[in-house]
């Protein structure tokens, strides 16, 4: 009986080596730059434990309704952020508006975490989309498939190898999260809440990476060449980012007119961001959302694997 584990590790390390050599360096540089700026921007805001109506919020005839209308809260958060940022930019001094911690946490989710998740998704989808399609295009895939490695095992090994290159990025994200929560929020939120926030960001990073890596593997299986597979992955990601951006701004319109508010609110409820925000009000919703992402990821991963196992391969 052939020692399968040696083969599995060989494929994983081969794919990982390729991923590190060709695909990740630019992504990591860009990610570090943008993530650091966004983290610093969030850090520079001044947060306080004030509750209820704040001086700033009195400019708007809307009250925070924590846990009741998160979308309305979100619109207020955004406006508060823009006002404080404008104030800072026009006066050249740090903003003298003390934002509620809730706003800080939301901004933290909107800026650095969304940037981190987008970067992770992009890296994962690119690495995985190229893994099988690249070998099919260069016609070297047959080497792997005439070896005694079961096809399903070869597929999963390539997946693990490709996704492995995203692990340092997840670690960086987590390190940033630990820092910003400790530096900006910990004095004002409970220890359990801070720990939950860190865990949620870590889980979201891992699950989002898994989801996009699985989509990448699926595309890699059904596409004949590397460029098409990576481009398709890129398009899926772009569409997701556009939709997320639209979802981010939809809540702002929800306060504009009463008649459309309920419709928009229903639409925005399916937004990943909305759900992430709601997760701040209750961990159960977050867990459900993560489970849905995990399920979709598994569906893509195993669909790709089933196709790959039954696929004809040329040499």
């Amino acid at each position: 009986m052939v020692n399968l584990f040696k083969g599995v590790f060989a494929i994983i390390f081969d794919e990982l080596k390729f991923a590190i050599r060709r695909k990740t360096i630019t992504s990591y540089i860009l990610f570090s730059f943008v993530f650091a700026i966004s983290l610093y921007g969030t850090y520079m805001q001044e947060y306080g434990a004030a509750q209820g109506e704040m001086p700033l919020l009195s400019m708007f005839p809307i009250e925070l309704e924590k846990g009741v209308a998160p979308l309305t809260d979100f619109a207020i958060f955004l406006m508060a952020f823009f006002v404080s940022a404008l104030q800072s930019a026009s006066s050249g001094t740090p903003p003298d508006v003390v934002l509620p911690v809730d706003i800080g946490i939301t901004l933290f989710i909107i800026a650095p975490i969304l940037i981190a998740l987008s970067s992770l998704s992009k890296l994962a989808v690119r690495l995985c989309a190229s893994s099988i399609a690249r070998e099919r295009e260069s016609k070297t895939l047959y080497h792997l498939l005439v070896s005694p490695q079961p096809r399903a095992m070869a597929y999963l090994s390539k997946f693990i190898g490709a996704i492995g290159a995203a692990i340092p990025m997840i670690v960086l994200v987590f390190a940033g999260v630990v820092w910003i929560i400790g530096a900006s929020f910990v004095p004002y939120i409970e220890v359990e809440q801070a720990a939950q926030l860190k865990n949620q960001v870590l889980i979201a990073s891992i699950v989002t990476t898994f989801l996009f890596a699985s989509i990448g593997m699926f595309l890699s299986t059904i596409t004949r060449n590397e460029e098409s597979a990576v481009n398709r992955g890129g398009w899926i990601l772009k569409i997701m980012i556009v939709l997320t951006t639209v979802w981010i701004f939809l809540p702002i319109f929800s306060v504009a007119g009463e008649s459309t508010a309920s419709t928009i609110e229903k639409i925005t409820m399916i937004s990943p961001l909305t759900l992430d925000m709601i997760a701040l009000y209750g961990g159960e919703m977050f867990n459900q959302y993560m489970l849905i992402q995990l399920g979709v990821g598994l569906l893509f991963l195993f669909s790709g694997m089933m196709i790959f196992v039954r696929q004809d391969v040329e040499y």
Partner: peptide, 9 residues
């Protein structure tokens, strides 16, 4: 060498 690993050598 890579193929030898695939064959568990």
């Amino acid at each position: 060498r890579f193929h030898a690993k695939l064959y568990g050598m």
